[in-house]
Design a protein around this nucleic acid. Structure first.
Lengths: 180, 180
DNA sequence: CATGAAAATTTAAGTCA
DNA sequence: TGACTTAAATTTTCATG
């Protein structure tokens, strides 16, 4: 599906505040309310917008602690196995298979560190999990709603102006390590 | 602030679908539309609900690649320094200081791996960053909106029934490693 | 004190040119 | 796409247990 600037602006407006009226969004992007509604309907049908959610302060609900758990799995473990396992855990808010030493990274929310420990135990109890390595979050610095991007990326655009070198500067190259 | 079951049910309903009408939510939780609105207003004022967002499929916007970047910083680096640095990067969707070897974990979204590399370079260019270690996401298994929890946790509740041992079973203990 | 039912106002949804 | 029309929702006010 092809998204023009208007679509992107509408999405940005809705990510910012999903309860704005169509008229307000229209004023912001330069369209009538009916046109905005049509585009939103189309964006939903196309799957670009998947729904609308309340943003919640996890602390207010008692989820004061979060952690990232790396899973090291047996050689023949399938991503779908991991998906099934983590989906059973209500404390898991995000999970992905990744490159590097670990096979998967799991983001969990819990009430306290004791609770974190129980969740790790539960994950480690899966047959395919060889070991786990966890980091507890000390302070959350950034937490954007998925899709909240300041400006939509146009792959061709790059950062030609601010980033004149196509490749990394050799001297700086060895300061970073991409595992995988 | 004190949240009762009704508040928690209302929040769950709004996380599930923020565009439900107050009447629908009321039917779901057993309250009138006016009562629901009052509670929602109160929850927003109290900061439990921080806003409403459209859920977006990042792929639809061209963000097809994501990665996790660990930052290893100089000894006296303050969390606020890291926060300022990552906030400058529009590709950063989440960041936190963590326990373990790395000082911070940064979650980024990009258009492709080439773009990921440029972002890592930009992060690594910060004076306080000694080195970075990155993992690229192969497949996203779980991605819940913040606050989407099946049932609100009551710290006392625990999992006494399904988890009879207060402490970890020694035999399983060494299968997990909590760093920090 | 929070609730439910009323009213008045605004918004959404659908139809037309 | 924008303007118009109808239906529905939000918002406010008020009375009740």
């Amino acid at each position: 599906m092809e998204l023009d600037r208007l679509d992107r602006d509408i999405i940005a407006a809705l990510v910012d505040d999903a309860r704005q009226t169509y008229a307000e969004i229209g004023h912001r992007v330069g369209l009538s309310a009916s046109a905005v509604k049509r585009r939103v309907d189309r964006l939903r049908e196309a799957g670009a917008i998947t729904g609308f959610s309340a943003r919640v302060a996890p602390q207010a609900l008692g989820w004061t602690t979060e952690a990232y758990v790396e899973l090291f799995c047996q050689g023949k473990t399938k991503p779908s196995d991991i998906a099934l396992a983590v989906a059973k855990c209500p404390e898991v808010v995000a999970a992905a298979t990744i490159t590097g030493e670990a096979d998967a990274l799991v983001h969990i929310r819990a009430t306290d560190v004791r609770h974190v420990e129980r969740v790790i135990e539960r994950l480690a109890a899966e047959a395919f999990v060889v070991r786990t390595k966890s980091s507890i979050v000390l302070s959350r610095l950034v937490d954007l709603p998925p899709g909240a991007v300041p400006d939509a990326p146009l792959p061709g655009r790059a950062e030609a102006g601010s980033d004149p070198f196509a490749g990394p500067v050799p001297d700086e190259r060895n300061r970073t390590q991409v595992v995988g």
